[in-house]
Amino acid sequence: METLVTEIAPDIYRLSTYISDADFLFNQFLIVAEEPLLFHCGLRSLFPLVSDAVARVSPVADLRWITFGHVEADECGSLNSWLAAAPRAEVAHGAMGCLVSVNDMADRPPRPLRDGEVLDLGGKRVRRLETPHVPHGWDAGLLFEETTGTLLCGDLFTSVGNAPALTETEIVGPAMATEDVFGATCLTAATAPTMRRLAELRPTTLGLMHGPSYTGDCGRALDDLAAAYEARFVESLNGRRAADS
């Protein structure tokens, strides 16, 4: 295995490891600024590979912020390894996630972030967007880098297989095919509206955790993803009503 490094937007780097046995990509994102930030820590077993990849771009010890979408092994399994390697680093996560999980998990106290709160990194600005249960996890949230219009969208658009670092090829179809296999996304009344609120940001790049980074019509992709899940939600309601009648 190797971790590949690609600049997907100015000073935003995709760190990508393909695990062939699982036929799955695991991506982290490094934002280089006066206060460098890592989004997704990665699995604990991948820390040597990913930290070496970070070091090719910026010293690991210089990391100031470590954050992730929600509490899950592939998002924060190596959290404390990063804290040990970067003595100035602070964990930043949504307030709910800090309360229920990160306060206990992290070797240093985390910085709770409110919905919409911005971290000024010096040259880059990242905004925490709370997305409870979208795609899953009640502490779920995403990160939007305002100066480049890059949405780091975690498990949204997850697809199996290896993929190029950047693509303009349609990503909703592969995501829904993967959803058919794993059923990983919560279907609630808030699922589609949450995705449509993300579309209103009109991002220019989508940083997928499991798949390629996307540089096509990002707003349209999010709207189409919302429509696909809305159709499934309505179908599930209709199925329940039919069963109850």
Rank of each mutant, 00 (worst) to 15 (best):
M1L: 15
T3H: 07
E7T: 01
R14G: 12
S20I: 00
D21L: 10
F24R: 13
F24A: 14
F26L: 15
E35P: 06
P36V: 07
L49R: 11
L49E: 13
V50M: 06
A53Q: 09
V54W: 02
A55Y: 04
F68M: 04
V71R: 13
V71N: 13
E72K: 14
A73D: 15
S81F: 08
W82A: 06
A84S: 08
A85C: 03
A86R: 01
H93R: 12
G97E: 01
L99I: 03
S101G: 15
V102G: 09
N103S: 15
A106R: 15
P109Q: 10
G116H: 06
L119K: 14
D120N: 10
L121E: 07
G122N: 09
P132Y: 12
P132R: 10
P132M: 11
P132F: 08
V134A: 07
H136L: 04
G141R: 04
G141T: 03
G141E: 01
L142H: 15
L143N: 06
E145Y: 02
T148E: 00
T148Y: 00
T150Q: 02
C153I: 00
D155N: 01
L156N: 03
G161F: 03
N162V: 02
P164A: 09
E170G: 15
V172Y: 13
V172I: 08
G173A: 14
A177P: 09
F182M: 13
T185F: 13
T185P: 12
T188S: 13
T188Y: 05
A190T: 09
T194D: 04
T194Y: 00
M195Q: 09
R197E: 05
L198H: 04
L198P: 03
A199Y: 11
L206Q: 04
L206F: 01
M209G: 08
S213M: 03
T215P: 15
G216W: 06
G219N: 02
G219R: 06
D223M: 14
D223E: 12
A226Y: 07
A226H: 08
A228L: 07
A228Q: 02
Y229Q: 01
E230S: 08
E235L: 11
S236N: 02
N238H: 09
A242F: 04
A243R: 11
